[in-house]
């Protein structure tokens, strides 16, 4: 029925419920949500600010701020920076999650390979 087969390494069936009830597990899930939800809302809003800006506020977006380069162009460039910064934040946060994940799994006698 469930096709993702457990690999040979974890022979005794895993007690998923016991892990899920563990306070460290819920702490891990909460800690992920604390970053993922606000960050996702932020990048969606920041990203759509660009098409909304150029679509409905063209006079503002066409204002020149450096030579002939206008706000629209700089705002578009800033999206690249925003994406890179958020990616960096994620990586830093995720290495913390990796640590709590290792501790959690070790508690139940599983070693994760990372």
């Amino acid at each position: 029925m469930n096709d993702p087969q457990p690999s040979a390494a974890d022979k005794p069936p895993i007690d998923w419920h016991r892990i899920q009830r563990d306070p460290d597990f819920s702490a891990l899930v909460r800690s992920k949500a604390r970053l993922v939800i606000p960050a996702t809302v932020f990048f969606i809003v920041y990203y759509f600010a660009l098409p909304i800006g150029v679509g409905w506020f063209p006079e503002f977006m066409e204002k020149k701020i450096w030579g002939d380069m206008n706000i629209a162009y700089f705002f578009a460039l800033s999206q690249f920076l925003m994406a890179w910064v958020l990616a960096a934040i994620y990586v830093v946060a995720a290495s913390g999650w990796d640590r709590s994940e290792r501790t959690l799994l070790a508690k139940f006698g599983y070693t994760s390979k990372h």
Binding site: D3, P4, V36, A39, T40, F43, Y47, L50, P51, V54, A72, Y73, A76, Q79, F80, M82, A83, L86, A87, Y90
Partner: peptide
């Protein structure tokens, strides 16, 4: 300029992949 809007969207989209999809996908699939 409008063509550049594609470029912006193509990159920012990776935040969706990174933040939401990549890890659960790898962990649960084959």
């Amino acid at each position: 300029y409008d063509g550049f809007m594609y470029s912006v969207g193509f990159l920012v989209a990776y935040l969706t992949v990174l933040y939401i999809v990549a890890e659960p996908l790898r962990n649960s699939g084959k």
